[in-house]
Simulated assay, not measured.
Amino acid sequence: MYQPHVFTLTEDGYRGPAPSWSAGAPSLWLVDTEPAAEAARLLAPKILDASELARAERLAFPADRACYTAAHLALRLLLGARQGVAPEAVRLTRERCPACDGPHGRPATGGGTHFSLSHTRGVALLAFAGAPVGVDVERVPAARVVAEISGQLHPAEAAELAALPPEDRPAAFARVWTRKEAYLKGEGTGLAGGLHREHVGTGPRPVGPPGWAVTDVAAPAGYAAAVAVRAAGRAPGEGDDRRK
């Protein structure tokens, strides 16, 4: 289990260390987006670009707008600190999709920094690394959601879930979902390729697909999170005092 840094957004922005990492060990940051809502509202017009502001406005619920805004502010502030530029000057692009060559692959920026961002109502998680990286955070789902979707997983994962007592399945499903989505985001394909690809496991320890290290990330109660790094050679945080 990897313990992320806590990112605190203030009305003045962010004052703290820039993301840094060693080979195969990404820098992870967790944002509690609800306390950051007012600071995010004040900072957004100064830092986010027109497309980010427009996307936030399209979200129907205030809590979702606050979460999206705080997450993207954290991304720009941390990338700006890493690159030594103002957060509003950070250039965000998209790589080509490795599956179809469309313009919807991994998000990217200049300077050799790979990053990934995930948010769900109340929480955002960001990862920065020197190699392709994917991250995901999700709420633990209700039992009915697990029953509806578990059949779409890799057959071995579906069997693992079915073998568990019903009360243990939501947490196990959240583990496998975040591991799988982190890996697929790191690949740049996302969920379009289907949940049946690759076996990452539902148990306490993830199974890394060849060439990737997948690790669970500590998250608030009621959430699950994971990170995947390409060609890491070791699990993120291994030998680091931030690993639990």
Score class of each variant (00 low, 15 high):
132 P>E: 06
16 G>D: 08
25 A>E: 01
127 A>T: 06
127 A>C: 09
2 Y>Q: 04
226 A>H: 07
41 R>P: 03
89 A>F: 06
196 H>V: 05
71 A>I: 13
122 G>F: 09
54 A>W: 03
116 S>K: 14
31 V>Y: 04
221 A>S: 14
242 R>Y: 06
32 D>S: 12
123 V>M: 12
169 R>E: 12
220 P>S: 11
23 A>D: 14
21 W>L: 00
92 L>E: 10
102 G>N: 11
243 R>G: 05
87 P>S: 14
121 R>V: 14
231 A>T: 08
95 E>D: 15
22 S>W: 02
119 H>N: 13
135 V>E: 00
112 G>F: 13
135 V>A: 07
188 G>M: 06
146 V>C: 11
193 G>N: 07
191 L>M: 11
22 S>K: 00
97 C>V: 14
195 L>H: 04
68 Y>C: 04
47 I>A: 01
120 T>W: 09
217 V>C: 02
14 Y>M: 06
100 C>E: 12
187 E>G: 03
164 L>N: 06
171 A>W: 02
108 A>S: 15
224 A>E: 00
203 G>E: 15
89 A>W: 05
93 T>I: 04
49 D>W: 07
78 L>T: 10
112 G>L: 11
41 R>E: 15
200 V>E: 01
55 R>W: 02
237 G>C: 11
87 P>R: 07
173 F>I: 10
157 E>Y: 04
2 Y>F: 05
196 H>W: 06
187 E>I: 02
38 E>M: 06
80 G>L: 09
61 F>Y: 10
105 G>A: 13
3 Q>F: 03
159 A>H: 05
20 S>V: 09
223 Y>W: 15
127 A>F: 08
186 G>Q: 04
174 A>N: 04
116 S>G: 14
102 G>V: 03
40 A>K: 01
17 P>L: 04
32 D>E: 15
133 V>S: 01
88 E>S: 14
231 A>G: 12
1 M>Q: 06
39 A>C: 08
92 L>W: 08
160 E>G: 05
78 L>Y: 01
94 R>T: 11
27 S>M: 03
167 E>T: 10
29 W>V: 01
196 H>Y: 10
121 R>T: 15
140 V>M: 07
11 E>Y: 03
95 E>N: 11
4 P>T: 02
152 Q>G: 03
138 E>I: 07
90 V>G: 07
52 E>T: 02
29 W>D: 00
244 K>A: 12
31 V>F: 10
161 L>P: 00
190 G>N: 05
18 A>E: 11
216 D>F: 00
81 A>P: 03
107 P>S: 12
244 K>E: 14
182 A>C: 08
164 L>E: 01
103 P>M: 14
232 A>D: 03
82 R>E: 12
